[in-house]
Design a protein around this nucleic acid. Structure first.
Lengths: 186, 186
DNA sequence: CAGGCTAACGCAGGATATTCGCGTTAGCCG
DNA sequence: CGGCTAACGCGAATATCCTGCGTTAGCCTG
């Protein structure tokens, strides 16, 4: 199932996973996507290639796993005092993190994980969870909040679509426009 | 049905491309994604693997090329007499063609083409062109039409996002709901 | 704190896939 | 009809991927 919950959290498995993930990130940072190959990863992580193939199956699945880790939110979304401000701040960070060529690569890796179909779904769950937290906070302030599904359709989906299919038509201003439209058409 | 613009349209290059594309489709239909490998493709197409590698670079790029061909619209969008009806029909066909596991694969291939970044963009252009045609037709009838960009955000992006990231939350009814929301919030 | 138990690993060898140089060919063009 | 060039075929070298089998790390029971 999930690579996150390993059978023996403190043991060798966890060390190997950390070393391999780290090797992937380092190799990608140093030599770009072309330098990321299983034998090179294994060598840098201090394991044999067969270990990598056994754990992850193939390179695409490993990349999806690494991408999922990079896409996981660091913490709860920033609190700027109001629903609109919170959503705008969140969307701005989203664009800045994933709108870059590197960020686009992570998204592509998350989608491309062949064997582990659930990676993309969990990636989407991250965004939904952040939006839900913002909504709960706003509701606690007495604000009227749109549903998470509506926000996913109105904000997240257009942002992700443009990142993956139309990288040129993306900007912070565009993201903020999506947020405002989502809040006014309710 | 128009073939990709090659240097020598009627010559050997075009024949090789057709044979290779066809081999990819056949192998995928017969043995699934696992059966699609460059040597097998080359053998079936009657060429050598080196030809495939020289033309497309790697398997991901070739798959993106094939996916682009399958994603190309067959013709102008169906005319059902009204803007809302046309959009609903188009969205329904979109969901039925790309919401299947096979359709999802095409979309992923189009996104995954590494060297040829433009494939995803052209795929997006196909959708924009279809929506533009529907809009022009509606305008000719005197209807008020939303802009193509608005429709891309309100209809195409949510559909594609769900296909790639949340395959479970997809249905024709959902697509029609997107169309209606896009037409009422204007 | 010993000893068993099992998932995960290392190693080695083979199968498959990718890259490259070099000679050849198809088909456009004067 | 004959030259020119992009594209192809062939074959070898390299790299990557897969699998079986023995070994080890670390949890668990007593």
């Amino acid at each position: 199932m999930s690579e996150k919950a390993v059978a023996r959290p403190g043991g060798r498995s966890a060390r190997v996973q950390q070393a391999v993930h780290r090797a992937v990130r380092e190799l990608e940072a140093e030599g770009g996507r072309g330098a990321v190959a299983v034998p090179a990863i294994a060598t840098r992580a201090g394991v044999t290639p067969s270990t990598v193939y056994r754990r992850w199956g193939d390179l695409a699945t490993l990349l999806a796993d690494v991408a999922l880790e990079r896409l996981r939110p660091d913490g709860p979304p920033a609190d700027r005092g109001g629903l609109r401000e919170d959503l705008e701040a969140w969307a701005e960070q989203f664009v800045e993190e994933l709108g870059s060529p590197a960020g686009r690569l992570y998204l592509r890796d998350a989608v491309g994980g062949a064997a582990d179909e659930g990676v993309a779904g969990r990636c989407s769950d991250y965004a939904a969870e952040q939006l839900r937290a913002i909504g709960v906070r706003a509701a606690g302030r007495g604000e009227a909040v749109p549903g998470v599904e509506a926000l996913m359709d109105a904000v997240v989906a257009p942002l992700v679509y443009r990142i993956l299919f139309r990288p040129d038509g993306l900007s912070v201003a565009y993201a903020q426009g999506l947020v405002r439209a989502a809040l006014t058409t309710d």
